[in-house]
Design a protein around this nucleic acid. Structure first.
Lengths: 235, 235
DNA sequence: GCCGGAGCAATTGCATACACTTTTTGCCTT
DNA sequence: AAGGCAAAAAGTGTATGCAATTGCTCCGGC
């Protein structure tokens, strides 16, 4: 129980704890609504309570745990409703990024976006889901950056981070890869034309579809707000 | 130096420290770029370093201070560019809230919104800036809530919080009160009609105007990123 | 005279101990 | 037997001390 700490790749202790705990939440080892006792966690990872406390703070900021003063922390219970709300926000944010990108991207940015997008067609043909997923993340990040608005970028990346655990299965649906590429293509085309309205709606539709694909796997919320029997991301 | 703590209204020590430090940042007593030494702050407020550390974490999450591992915290330097980006985001977020409100508000919510809005006309006639500002905050909050999307609400409230220090002077401009009311009226009318597109653009315009009004007071950033001679909110 | 490295001071990160709050449990009263 | 109060136990909040990392200074070499 004590050698665990050395197995995790380093960084500050707090970082390790953040990773360790968030992993356990995301993989469903810690279930929504479950109480997170500081002393137990400290003992479990063989560190003192101090870094655990700070880790819980950060996780709370990330939305993975909920904290109430003098009453400890619990794994955040994400209701179907809240999840839908996050996807909805994501769609709107991506739409903003796409619109701004259409208006503000430099010639260089546009070139790179288009080139990378065309290159990604290869992954679709090969059915290389892993590689496409990697490219997909990069593609969207490029869009966020292209908006040339630091704060929009922050909001978008934050929301994406919160959604990450619920989005794992999206490319496992048959034909999703090709469809995703087509949707990307619509966005890219609109941006290249500088058509911000079209870029916005294309981006929004794209996320909405991902949302629906993921919704299948979403967990329902129980009346009592109790812990789910099924972990949130056992897709 | 030790009686200070009792003067601040209670809550947990960390909350007090968050308020105390953020006040000092917002009032310009602590200047952008200035280093925040944990020990000094602890001594200054006569508490231990522990709550100071947690307070700095929270302030960092709020965007008021920047923290780098093993290198301490500094008062966040908000560039003109970043400030503009935040106002821009705010305009987009408010537009989303207004659009959703137009589509989703219940009959009761619409009634209340309209009634309160009409009642606020009184403050305009009287030139009661304080009361109007109070109402104004409530009005916008109603809009955020009316969107019926928890996550959008969170994003919007967070962004508003970050902008708060830079928005203090908006109603000090002559005629701003009446103009603000007119803009609110356009939003309310559109929402009552259920015209989401009109509500969105009206809300966006409203914030944009506030943005411009506030921009006058915004600080510029120096090439070196050094502390500003003029505090950020000495409006 | 300038650049580089080793030692030292200062500051952050982590651990442990203590204080206060909340919750539970058990006893007493009705 | 049920409800309420009180005391103890559990758990969070704060304080303090020690370890580790960073940045600086000073000395030596080129």
């Amino acid at each position: 129980m004590s050698g665990k700490r050395n197995l995790i790749r380093s960084g500050t202790t707090v970082d390790q704890m953040v990773r360790a705990i968030s992993d356990r939440i995301v993989t469903g080892f810690l279930r929504p609504g479950e109480k997170l006792d500081e002393a137990s966690l400290a003992a479990r990872f063989d560190v003192s309570r101090t870094p655990i406390r700070e880790a819980l703070s950060r996780l709370s900021a990330m939305g993975l745990v909920e904290r109430r003063p003098n009453r400890g922390a619990t794994v955040a219970v994400v209701t179907q409703e809240h999840l839908a709300s996050m996807f909805e926000s994501m769609a709107e944010l991506e739409a903003i990024c796409a619109r701004f990108s259409a208006e503000r991207m430099t010639a260089g940015e546009r070139r790179t976006l288009e080139a990378e997008h065309q290159a990604s067609a290869r992954f679709v043909q090969l059915g290389a889901e892993e590689e496409y997923e990697l490219f997909n993340t990069e593609f969207h990040t490029r869009l966020y950056r292209g908006a040339h608005s630091k704060h929009i970028y922050e909001l978008t990346v934050m929301t994406r981070g919160r959604l990450a655990p619920f989005r794992r299965a999206q490319f496992m649906l048959p034909g999703r890869l090709a469809q995703s590429w087509q949707e990307h293509d619509a966005i890219v085309t609109a941006i290249m034309r500088g058509d911000s309205a079209a870029a916005g709606t294309a981006a929004k539709d794209h996320v909405s579809i991902v949302s629906e694909a993921s919704a299948v796997f979403a967990i329902g919320d129980r009346p009592k707000g109790k812990a789910e029997p099924v972990p949130t991301s056992a897709f």
